[in-house]
Design a protein around this nucleic acid. Sequence first.
RNA 1: GCCUGGGUGGUGAAAUCGGUAAACACAGAGGACUUAAAAUCCUCCGCCGCGAGGCUUGCGGGUUCGAGUCCCGCCCCAGGCACCA
Length: 832
Amino acid sequence: MSDEMHVTDTYHPAEIERKWQKRWAEEGTNTFTDEALRARGREGKPFYNLMMFPYPSAEGLHVGNIYAFTGADIYGRFKRLQGHDVFEPIGFDAFGIHSENFALKVGTHPMELIPSNIEKFTRQLRRVGLMYDWKHSLDTTDPEYYRWTQWVFLQLYKAGMAVKKEAPVNWCPSCNTVLANEQVIGGECERCGTAVELRNLSQWFFRITEYAERLLNNLDWLDWSESTKKAQVNWIGRSQGAEVAFPIARARVAEDRHASAAIEAERPVIRVFTTRPDTLYGATYMVLAPEHPLVERVTTPENRERVEEYRRKAASTDLVSRKKTDKTKTGVDTGGRAVNPATGEEIPIWIADYVLMEYGTGAIMAVPAHDERDFEFANEFGLPIRRVVAADGDSGDTPLNEAYVGSGRLVNSGEYDGMEWQEAKRKITDELAARKLATPQTNYRLHDWCISRQRYWGPPIPILYCDACGTVPVPEDQLPVVLPHIDDYKPDESGISPLARHEEWYVTECPGCGGNAHRETDVSDTFLDSAWYFLRYPSAGNDQLPFDPEVTRGWLPVDSYIGGNEHAVLHLLYSRFITMVLKDLGHIEFEEPFRKFRAHGLIIKEGAKMSKSKGNVVVPDEYIEEWGADTLRTYLMFIGPYEEGGDFRDAGITGPYNFMNRLWDTVISAEEREIDAQVEQKLHATIQKVTEDTEALSYNTAIAAMMEYLNVVRAGGRTPEVEAVQPLIPLIAPYAPHLAEELWERSGGNGSVFDEAMWPDFDATKAVADEVEFVVQVNGKVRTRMQMARGIDEHAAREAAIVDENVLRFIEGKQVRKTIFVPDRLLNLVVG
RNA sequence: GCCUGGGUGGUGAAAUCGGUAAACACAGAGGACUUAAAAUCCUCCGCCGCGAGGCUUGCGGGUUCGAGUCCCGCCCCAGGCACCA
């Protein structure tokens, strides 16, 4: 179709969208050259507008992707019209189990599948009219990208933040690989829903727990969606308390039978972590995790058999059932005894699977009166319950029906009786600390990040094992360690990567001594690929450095990041962690990658989440075909608040389509004449509202404001003034970029509206009307509405109100006791 | 159980420093223009009532001249976390 077609005066979205997409691509409207990027970062007004990059699935672009991208793109275009140099890149997160499983299913190698998926995605994305800098795109499976992912691994390795250790890890028996804690949802694999098993394997871990405190504290000042911050706070799970030592009762410790007083201090102790040292006097028994190393030692001969049996059973029970809360408590008495350091009492030591080895010390002091789980356990096994905290007016002597976890004062606690619990917490900790029996302690729920994957489709971990030198990092100048093209990439349940079947690949020589070495055959977690990609974009294409220092200084950290909240604790936490480590190592100058983050809502279809199995997936192409990208974009944003998502309904799209047509017609038919005063007032009010709402991502109300304005401009079929319609072109441009470009050109503008037009200013004094609709209430009920001059005073308003017949009817013969006056809004007459 | 959001017409929603509930739009009804249709434009559109008026923001209380908005106690929906000591 030729450009001459546009001489028609009707809105033809297909034509103008094709025309402008072509022009944007040819003229590089939205891309920076590397030189320009460098210069703009240095002396321009750089604005890094980022959105979460997609996984390029074979099904193609989803309407959910478009929803996410459009919302972010609108913000970027808005910033550009406000005069910023906006860098808006996109790339592809193409490694990972998802792609690999799909490749296995359809029998096409991922190395063939991914490029064609990316090609399809790119084609679709271009049709949506997104302002992407395609010159700075990236693909995580490109060796030129993962070369630097491997480099990131090596930096962590050198800093001692990447360690290999044997640990119980989450194993998915269906995906045949290890999963990070964050990828286990309710004991099941987040990908396939299979119950996860525990396996002891030697794996690479990133020591993210070292950064727990910083990751938590920085949340205070980050401008992020509150829900996302909360999710991270919960995930990090900081608990403050004390580690308390409970000596094992001497008689029960075989090795200690003849111990002298001199080694008294070294008597074995059971360390527990508690957040409630104030309840120490109520600790009537102890519980060790079945795997706890001291179990052997405290178990008495007569209990040994039952203890062993319980431990065997616990070891074979999968995590899912072990973590079920509604399960009744089980456990076994070891026969061993420990000394409560507060009371000096000997208390029994049990083992039970409700105590988890991986949290705290793997042992607890049980305070059944003030802990729900301990209460349940004590009732199950008839263990004593002693109340030590009581609310005001409660003697603390009556038996409890349930654990009391509230606040109060101490009872049955010796010298601490009567003390307020918070104070007792400090005092008891101090006192035990003086006796070397306690230390204040902070624990985190966060675990180290296991990044090893026994799969094929990922970047090989750049480590060698030399017969002589041991673990050797691949020298940086030998990167990338290229993932070989192999055909038998299907994983098995052995726990060994498919790459381990390829001796020709993994056997190599040691870069240190030249001796025999073999490569690490695991690949890294996909979340490592995405934990640093925002650093790469501005330097994409640089084959010397992962990220150029000058470019990075100019453009990072990211100014605005928009994405789904499903990544609240995965991608977003890992990215923050990697950024902090790189900062500490001196590679970058900031420690938080995303200044501002907003989570967008989820787009659903007729009340249900879209999924292939439900057959309710909205394919965007058809809608673009029928209505145009501008209409689809505007419709998606008009459905509801961007941060809440909404329901895609076919019927609703006609509203925004009519709006596009009406807007087109209004601008085309405008004539040169003086602007009407009321229209001008509405214009300023509209510019103000669209500016504020777009900044706040309140796109639905911004669009409504523009619709409302059109209704005023066209009221009664009037011919609009040029002055009244010109500002609409930049206002609509972020939402409907193609339409805006075309209207800009047709009204005599040169080049792209995004480069040549400015976001319109408004005059706040002109945005308000001279007359207001004033409400008169009697006893809080609306009785009449009057047109009044703005700024009318109480006396004048009252004079006008009390002669109105609708008001008179309700106040006649009654005394007005009180008058409430809200300027320019309302008058309320209170009668008795 | 805990943490987030949320619950408003036939539908998507708007209004939350307490001050006209339902902006904007979809669907619906009627009308103008037209030979007709489309497009466009105009009018109506929460519920009850002929009307005056009364009622209405998940439920029950409360504060206030006035509550969708604040407080207390619940119910329901979506998402996240969960035997974390």
